[in-house]
Design a protein around this nucleic acid. Structure first.
Lengths: 350, 350
DNA sequence: CTGAAAGCGCTTACAG
DNA sequence: CTGAAAGCGCTTACAG
């Protein structure tokens, strides 16, 4: 590995060195240990000493070096996002949420995609975390659903928060997305429109959300005294292509469904495609509901009725939980899935 | 700021300490300085000494602590991605490309969105880089087009690579995306289909790519002895909504264009929407070409003819250039924009 | 080609 | 409530 160029090597000789803890200590007339206490919020500093130090910090623009601090703490100020979700919109929303939550904290976000199927994930993740001595990680589906990864975090002493549709861990390690409620909302919406022959396209069985979204949908049917016809449940893979394939099969049935709830927007876009091929109008002949409310939902035609998941908000909460700054006063409803009605759903055809 | 829990505090007492440079030095019977030389690829180590040390490193699984190394080097092993592009697909493709290029290098990727308009961007970026002592940063449009940011990097001694549609800097700091060639391809394609009344919807004027894509389009028209009617150039903002608005205006003209080249896929999706509203069939009455070939291009209907930009590949190149590992043997064509023909373009209507 | 000393900028025990 | 010493795991001059 090529050693990096020394900082300032190309600078213009000004060499206005950043102040260190020693400078602050000298200017404030205290030991660096006391400055350290102020930085770390120790209560064992007299009020006037603290104020004097804080004044010097403000004047000099001193900011502690995270690397030096990390070396002494045996732990960095980096937070990792470990994910295997291939949807770019999900990834970016989650990142933005995490950054929202981390703003002003001095922590930085390091992104780390992985492949859950890979036999090397575990050692690979371990090496990443140990090398960088990560403060903590946020795990998103489906890696978040792997208990071995959570155990690994405990073992190596790395904080973690798992984002998942159901509680898989202690509350301090969990942010629940409650996908089941989203499925319920979808069912209620379609039933209120008069639909009785409903179908579901699931994500891959390796994602917990696939089962939760289906479960919630069935809950909603049960409320109306209905049950899902097993022939009306198709397995997809959360991809556009799998949505097309599943919808083709459903629409070829003898008494085809009048409404399809797809496990995500990508597959719902595939359903619209299959409906078009079959000469069916949406929502005239077929209602379609998606899940996520990513950008694609409002770019396709007809615009998709879908379940919005507040991914960015979830990310913010995850970061706050990880850093122990959770703000419990916030409205907990903000983090629940909610129905967004657009053009792809309508009354059941006569 | 709450100090982090000490590493291993929750571990199960095993405390199998990671080996340090001292362990390696002791086991190899050399000084730690010599181990350091091996780590840093110094040529001043005798071959047999080097081999002995490398053997110990392999046995013990030693990996140098990036934090300690960074502290001594006065520079971290972090690479920053600084961006203000709001398109999630762009961001994720770029990140994936950077990670491709960084794999196995020991560097990690820290993401840092910013807002170019914000009067505080410069100090904010400076604080971020100085605090973390970033090894280097990759800048993407439109922040990459701001010379003040490049100057800032020079001033604080941070490596940088700018990704932009045209050379704005020395070659060692530039990855060119040559958007102009993409515009040219779009024009040639439409002209070959017989179109003569062509229109363009630009991105915001603050993005260099807006002008380059237009410029290339005009180059293509010029090849055929044509010129763009000024009334056929509309200004958009690279957003879906702006694409709808611009297309509505173009389609309301007396002699409306038979083909529209939109500056990106998002706006092209808006054009399809406006065409539908106007009762025009695509490509029967109107051909549409986009730019980017993001996922949306193949999810909408009709699927979009567009210009593919190899963003992930560009990202890989940017990372390699930043780390001084550039592989010049690679086919340079891979990084150029290229035409992808789908369903939204067809022969000019009679 | 190799090493002993000093230092990077912080924090942790340990005293007082 | 405050501080002097030692240490986190590396690298940089400086010798030899």
């Amino acid at each position: 590995m090529k050693p990096p160029r020394t900082q300032g090597a190309s600078g213009e000789g000004l060499e206005r060195r950043r102040p260190t803890i020693n400078d602050v200590a000298r200017l404030a007339g205290v030991s660096k240990k006391t400055v350290s206490r102020v930085i770390n919020g120790s209560p064992f500093v007299r009020a006037d000493t603290r104020e004097r130090i804080e004044a010097v910090i403000a004047e000099t623009g001193y900011a502690p070096d995270p690397q030096a601090r990390g070396l002494a703490f045996r732990r960095s100020f980096l937070i990792g996002l470990i994910y295997d979700n291939p949807n770019p919109q999900y990834v970016v929303n989650m990142q933005n949420g995490l950054l929202d939550g981390m703003r002003g904290s001095g922590f930085e976000l390091v992104v780390h995609p992985c492949e859950r199927g890979d036999p090397n994930v575990l050692p690979e993740i371990r090496a990443f975390i140990e090398r960088q001595k990560l403060f903590g990680v946020v795990l998103t589906p489906s890696v978040s659903e792997d208990d071995r990864i959570a155990e690994l975090m405990d073992e190596i002493g790395c904080e973690y928060v798992r984002v998942a549709s159901v509680p898989l861990d202690e509350p301090e390690h969990m942010i629940e997305t409650k996908d089941r409620l989203g499925g319920l909302e979808a069912a209620r919406h379609l039933i209120a429109l008069g639909h009785r022959r409903l179908a579901f396209i699931s994500g891959p069985p390796t994602f917990r959300s696939s089962h939760e979204r289906l479960g919630g949908f069935e809950d909603g049917l049960a409320e109306a005294g209905l049950a899902l016809d097993p022939r009306h449940v198709a397995e997809g893979a959360y991809t556009f292509e799998s949505g097309i394939a599943a919808a083709r099969a459903l629409l070829a049935l003898d008494r085809r469904p009048t409404a399809i709830f797809a496990g995500n927007d990508e597959m719902a876009a595939g359903v619209l495609q299959a409906a078009r091929e079959a000469g069916l109008s949406v929502p005239g002949d077929l209602s379609v509901v998606g899940f996520d409310d990513f950008q694609i939902a409002s770019r396709i035609w007809p615009a998709l009725t879908t379940i919005r998941t507040p991914t960015r908000e979830i990310g913010r909460l995850a970061a706050e939980k990880l850093m122990g700054r959770e703000d419990e006063r916030r409205d907990p409803k903000q983090r629940l899935p909610s129905l967004v009605v657009r053009e792809s759903s309508g009354p059941v055809p006569k």
